[in-house]
Design a protein around this nucleic acid. Structure first.
Lengths: 162, 162
DNA sequence: CAAAATCATTACAAAAATGTAAAGAATAAT
DNA sequence: ATTATTCTTTACATTTTTGTAATGATTTTG
């Protein structure tokens, strides 16, 4: 399970734009994120084609978010930058030697990924860009430093045990 | 966010071994999973080095799980096959142009991935190989077909809102 | 012991993801 | 209009992941 480069850097650019009050040019963005100018350009182009940012050419131009940050979920951002953990192409992609996977039906692995994907999606749906841009302290404290206080998943409400 | 080939096929091999009562040879495993023999060999070697399976050479040889399936969590399996979503190498890996990331401290992105990783880990910790091998019907029904019944994440217990 | 079966290791080939380069097109300021 | 600024597009180079090939080592069986 791996976060792709596009997802990492794309998310950073979105957060950067969310924190900024004016529009930002590619040179600004690339400098602020430590990315090369062409790579920043490629990233922003992907975000633009997904409808997440708007671009204005020429002097005084640059990029701005196309919606207010609180209306943009992590789901939207990741959908623009890559495929979900378990998407429609999964079974075709991991078909082994043949054209189609040997587990044609009653596939245990597919069930695992499907359930996992739903679990993850539920999380991403509920986080928006405004929350990230504001740098919530609770995020770090409650989740990284005190894992034992996680109420999100318990044996009782774990969907795998329901 | 992407499931790697090693994770996909490695998990399948583990499930296959969990379902089998006798030891399985590489030719058997590769045939059952639609993988080439050398690739199956590479996979099982990785699993062996992680201590998840044991190998016996020569006639009557093959692979068996090194522990009963209910004692093997998804966390262990994925740890053997790849890195976590957000691991110790993350900030170094995605450092952009420089040697270290421009977000040296108070990094919003790091907080996001850290929280997300904890969330995911909590899930994987609670699923074991025996559950997967038994092919739980509830897995599919409750998670894929009735997403609205997910109690796992609600605005009240979402750690991002705590 | 010899032969067949089986796992182990190393090096290499192919494909995909990642990142760079260079030239093009649009806009606003002067 | 011209120029500087800025986004856009296409093609290519590099690196990582994925998968293959070939050879070596170990064990059981007869």
């Amino acid at each position: 399970m791996k976060v792709t480069a596009l997802e990492e850097y794309g998310l950073r650019c979105m957060i950067l734009l969310a924190k900024s009050n004016h529009s930002m040019t590619l040179p600004e963005i690339s400098a602020r994120e430590g990315l090369s100018l062409p790579y920043a350009g490629k990233l922003l182009m992907i975000l633009k084609q997904a409808g997440l940012v708007k671009a204005v050419r020429g002097r005084r131009g640059g990029y701005v978010l196309s919606k207010p940050p609180h209306e943009i979920s992590l789901t939207e951002i990741f959908a623009a930058l890559g495929e979900p953990v378990f998407g429609p192409t999964h079974c075709e992609r991991y078909s082994g030697d043949g054209d189609c996977c040997v587990h044609t039906e009653d596939c245990t692995v597919r069930d695992v990924w499907g359930a996992f994907n739903e679990f993850v999606s539920g999380y991403l749906d509920r986080v928006n860009l405004a929350e990230l841009a504001n740098g919530r302290k609770e995020l770090k404290i409650s989740s990284v430093e005190k894992p034992e206080e996680h109420k999100s998943i318990t044996p009782e409400n774990n969907i795998l045990n329901s």
